[in-house]
């Protein structure tokens, strides 16, 4: 009898996990995330603050990143259809914010969960991985949109003040944990913007939701295409003295 109970529980948990995963592709709202009563963007979890105080080491990070390579790939370039985002050159503060907020249940990511959870990766390892990823060059082609909509996308990006946070070259900002978005896979960018628009990206910046809400699906496609065709921001800003 005693043995039978945990087994039943396990079954329940497993089926819950599978449903959650299927749904995630099409938006699950986090009870703690954007839109919930006490949501404050950028309110750091204890864990996030702890990790930001640690000194990361790229060599150790490379080793710890092994457990991530199965999805994000050995070169951390993700996959072209955007199911798995590119992580090369992402700001350490952003990597730390995203992983810890997935762990805290603010951003929902059941696919990644068991491989990035507290029991799988330590705080120090997250600090190490974040430093390691920032050192990686992007060598593989990223996924682009089916048609070149970059002119329209650029106009939307300008008009709706995206550059205020993501920068003129899609470079984001390390100090504020604004993600770099240039040269990311089209499929990933489009999916995230859809989730930001419908309020299901748990850790959305409320100011960003305001500017993305009025955009049409065609606008989002155009912006995603534009950003996917920008070069890695580290190339774009090299020698940029302005």
């Amino acid at each position: 009898m005693i043995k039978a109970i945990p087994f039943a529980l396990l079954l329940l948990l497993t089926s819950w996990q599978v449903t959650a995963m299927a749904d995630a592709a099409d938006s699950v709202k986090s009870p703690l995330g954007y839109g919930s009563k006490n949501y404050v963007w950028g309110k750091m979890t204890r864990e996030q603050a702890d990790i930001l105080r640690l000194t990361g080491d790229a060599k150790r990070g490379k080793e710890a990143f092994r457990g991530c390579r199965g999805c994000h790939k050995a070169d951390a370039a993700g996959i072209v259809d955007g199911t798995y985002p590119r992580l090369t050159g992402q700001h350490p503060s952003v990597v730390i914010k995203q992983v810890t907020e997935v762990r805290a249940g603010v951003r929902i990511n059941p696919k990644m969960d068991p491989f990035a959870a507290e029991h799988a990766v330590s705080k120090q390892e997250i600090a190490d991985i974040s430093v390691y990823l920032a050192t990686l060059e992007t060598t593989r082609e990223n996924g682009k949109g089916p048609d070149d909509l970059s002119a329209k996308g650029k106009a939307v990006y300008k008009k709706h003040h995206c550059a205020k946070c993501h920068g003129d070259n899609g470079e984001g900002e390390e100090a504020k944990a604004f993600p770099a978005v240039a040269a990311q896979h089209y499929g990933y960018l489009l999916r995230e913007m859809r989730h930001i628009k419908d309020g299901t990206r748990g850790n959305s910046h409320p100011e960003m939701v305001k500017v993305i809400k009025p955009l049409t699906y065609n606008d989002l496609e155009a912006v995603a295409d534009y950003l996917s065709r920008l070069p890695d921001y580290r190339l774009a800003t090299k020698g940029d003295k302005k």
């Binding site: 995963m21 991530c68 390579r69 199965g70 999805c71 050995a74 199911t83």
Partner: peptide, 13 residues
């Protein structure tokens, strides 16, 4: 790996 069901590639580890 198997992308549809989020099975990570064995080669990763």
């Amino acid at each position: 790996g198997i992308v549809g069901t989020a099975v990570p590639a064995c080669s990763g580890c």
